[in-house]
Nucleic acid binder design. Structure first.
Lengths: 212, 212
DNA sequence: ACCGTAAGGTTAACACCGTTAGGTTAACGG
DNA sequence: CCGTTAACCTAACGGTGTTAACCTTACGGT
């Protein structure tokens, strides 16, 4: 085995991943079949089994790549805002939403049934940006712009809220709910995200908070 | 065509739906195949096409049934608490979470890719309990236990937060996030839900809210 | 120089899938 | 009594993931 051979092999693997990735982005998960990927690469379907154990393995690798891109996207968006600010945290949420809407098929697979079982989120690089979010929350608390709570709890809270908007938007396009017809010029998921801001900042209760 | 024949037909249809439903609950969506359903009913696979247009049609019907059960479950849970109280709203969220965790496969399909396209949530009976949530939010505002905002906006906010917990729990079991290892006796999704309560009530900001 | 080995690829085939076509049976209505 | 139709069947088609067996090609060690 020689260097050039290895390089070629890696390149072929990358080409397969690339084909699978774009195939999925175009037609969703159901459009990703071994035979379709193989045809796009210009090879027989069984050849793929020299690079990947099975289809699940291929899909996992594609998801992994998507996850890395996702994390980078989030980091870049957040770091355009000052350290310790609520804006930095907010920007990350907005980027989360934007990435999901622009890479719908990608995002669907990232958080799809495929990810179940033993191989869970913890194995993924960067944890999907969660550690970063936690850090920004911690920073905001240290800087005094956010009330002191368990930063993990708050990070989960923010994550769940944004993720909820995304999945609801992807599942039903938030249509049929009077507040947010995406077709009729109503509120987009992004608008919804912005509209939630006062709730997240000041809560829903009529009683004043007991500041600790 | 005679009464008994119609009854039998309806019963057969119900039997098919029942088989499909339990098949899905046991092994997820991928376990639901026309042939498997047919075998469980004791009939050939093609016989199903006398009752359902195609597989998608069958799945849609199963989902519809699940949606109805879901709505009933939510209504029952909420109405055990006094009208106009925050507790009623909260109970609905808790029921949402509980139903999703106890009927994982069901819930997965309800909010899965299958629901995409023209036939969206609005066609489903009861809108998945959303109108009910909106009503409870409105009641809470009228009773003075919740600050006055656009009730649709608040209902969406609460829905998104709970739905976010659910989907995150289903996707990654919230493991690998230090706060919530479901295996290691850590916080369960339900605990997480409860822990979010002060955030939802009083917000995260260090600044006091300008009460309108 | 040569032979073994292994990578990278092939075709053929298996078992399953959703779905269609066409045929069979039984029961009803005119 | 005949025609129609509901309800079901088997056979088959094209698609899927995957395995088995085989074929090149090119390298490395003796």
């Amino acid at each position: 085995m020689v260097k050039t051979a290895v390089t070629t092999s890696r390149e072929h693997e990358a080409a397969i991943l690339d084909a699978a990735s774009s195939l999925m982005a175009e037609g969703g998960v159901e459009a990703l079949s071994m035979r379709a990927v193989a045809e796009r690469v210009g090879v027989s379907a069984t050849a793929l089994y020299h690079y990947f154990e099975n289809k699940q393995d291929l899909v996992d690798r594609v998801v992994r790549l998507g996850f890395e891109r996702f994390g980078t996207y989030l980091r870049d968006a957040a770091q355009r805002h000052p350290e310790g600010s609520m804006e930095r945290v907010r920007a990350m949420g907005e980027a989360y939403l934007q990435f999901a809407l622009e890479n719908e098929a990608y995002f669907r697979v990232i958080f799809s049934i495929q990810l179940r079982g033993p191989r869970a989120l913890e194995e993924l690089p960067g944890g999907g940006g969660y550690p970063l979010l936690r850090q920004f929350v911690q920073d905001a608390m240290d800087a005094g712009s956010m009330r002191r709570f368990d930063p993990d709890l708050v990070a989960h809270y923010l994550w769940a809220t944004v993720h909820g908007i995304v999945t609801l938007a992807l599942a039903c396009r938030l249509r049929g709910c009077e507040a947010c017809e995406t077709d009729g010029g109503g509120a987009s998921p992004i608008d919804l995200f912005h509209a939630f801001d006062p709730f997240v900042r000041h809560g829903l209760s009529t009683e004043d908070a007991l500041l600790p």
